[in-house]
Design a protein around this nucleic acid. Structure first.
Lengths: 241, 241
DNA sequence: GTCTATATACGGATAGAC
DNA sequence: GTCTATCCGTATATAGAC
């Protein structure tokens, strides 16, 4: 997975946007016959419209409350046409969950792997997660809120995805502890708390927007707060930026 | 509001249980004519069954996906009888949201007011919030997940309730900073992060249960993590417990 | 590929007996 | 107070024309 720079949000956003599109096509290539549609161009364009509409409506009143009529109107496609892109509402939900998970996993792993020092890894992990959930906020909000409303198999995948993300954080904290840079008696619990904080960013987006706190301010504050708790004073470095 | 002790969870739980029941009766007394029911005993017993059933089903598959038939079966009342206790699904949802908010606000404010020192206030606030959301976990999970699926007026009340809770934390941090005990350059942001961490407790209950982390371990770890970040080293005290 | 029209089922709410 | 039976709107999904 190629790395996406994490010091410039605008640059990051552009690359995520490209990655999203390439994932549609990849999915299309890997699952021939799932769609009744032939042309890549058509499918890519319409999937994007469908997803955007589904996110907008679901995040306002819930996926289950969104009707196919709602969706067809917002996506500018008839209800009949929608069924060329997914086999039913459940299927649409599952597709969207998978799409978000795939992108998250790729971007996170890629960006963390680039860094070698625990402290830099931790900073990269936090900032990448924040940037990604900012660039795809409706997707993250949707995934979180609708996670329980899917079939058992898909739900297990969703839970597992969450645990994997947490594990990424935990491994970094663990490594830092082993090197004496971080002080903690429970790396996994530390990771849980960090995860809670990064999730708050996309779950309470409106609140932070009202207070004029953008993703960079949030990243700076959160990082400083965590490092102030976690860093071994013996190794203290000037704080980031 | 009388204080509920926060060093013993079992004791706490018992008192919250009593408070819950008294809130039903209070609501009943304050709104004569809302219910078609006459006897306090009947209404209290059935409301409890209805709420319990609604929480169980909604938290599994979402309030909107729960049908009146589901609810009637789980509550052991016919669909017709249910309408003696609320005027429709929307009304039920709103009632439940209000009930949770009322209790939260009373208990939190009461327990914080007892303490005078910022550090003790902070510890009381965190532990009370954790204990309360533990004793009423299904209620808190429900309120969070269904907050967006209600009418505009009720939603404003829900958002305001959240902000009030956050403000309780922020005021404590502010006071501590003024007294030189806490080090922070943004009390409100600190409160937001603390709130994100206490919320994680009731949102990811299953995860922590699987790891054998109970509410007391969580409280200890979280408190230690925050204090390690926030406390002015000049004033450092031996950590709690 | 997309549309309109429609089959079919399901859910909220009420009527009226007991 | 609670039940059963039922009305009626609405939702998903499909059929078939273009």
């Amino acid at each position: 997975m190629k790395q996406i720079p994490i010091d410039d949000y605008n640059q990051f956003k552009k690359e995520v946007s490209a990655l999203k599109k390439s994932c549609y096509l990849e999915f299309f290539a890997e699952n021939p016959g799932v769609f009744q549609i032939k042309k890549e161009k058509t499918i890519s364009k319409n999937l994007e419209r469908i997803f955007a509409a589904a996110l907008k409506i679901s995040n306002k009143k819930g996926f289950h409350a969104m009707t196919m009529r709602d969706l067809s109107k917002a996506a500018n496609l008839s209800t009949g046409a929608l069924y060329n892109y997914f086999s039913g509402k459940d299927d649409l939900l599952a597709m969207m969950q998978r799409h978000r998970r795939t992108i998250t996993s790729r971007v996170l792993k890629g960006n963390i792997a680039v860094e070698k020092e625990p402290l830099n890894k931790l900073r990269a992990a936090i900032r990448t997660h924040l940037y990604l959930s900012e660039a795809m906020q409706p997707w993250f909000f949707f995934s979180y809120m609708e996670a329980k409303n899917i079939g058992a198999k898909e739900r297990r995948a969703a839970v597992q995805g969450e645990l994997n993300t947490e594990k990424l954080f935990a491994e970094i904290v663990d490594m830092g502890r082993d090197q004496g840079i971080f002080l903690t008696d429970n790396a996994l619990m530390t990771a849980s708390l960090i995860k809670a904080m990064v999730q708050d960013w996309y779950l309470k987006r409106a609140k932070y927007a009202r207070r004029n706190i953008d993703v960079n301010s949030y990243a700076r504050f959160m990082t400083a707060f965590i490092e102030s708790s976690l860093l071994n004073p013996k190794f203290s470095t000037p704080s980031e930026r």
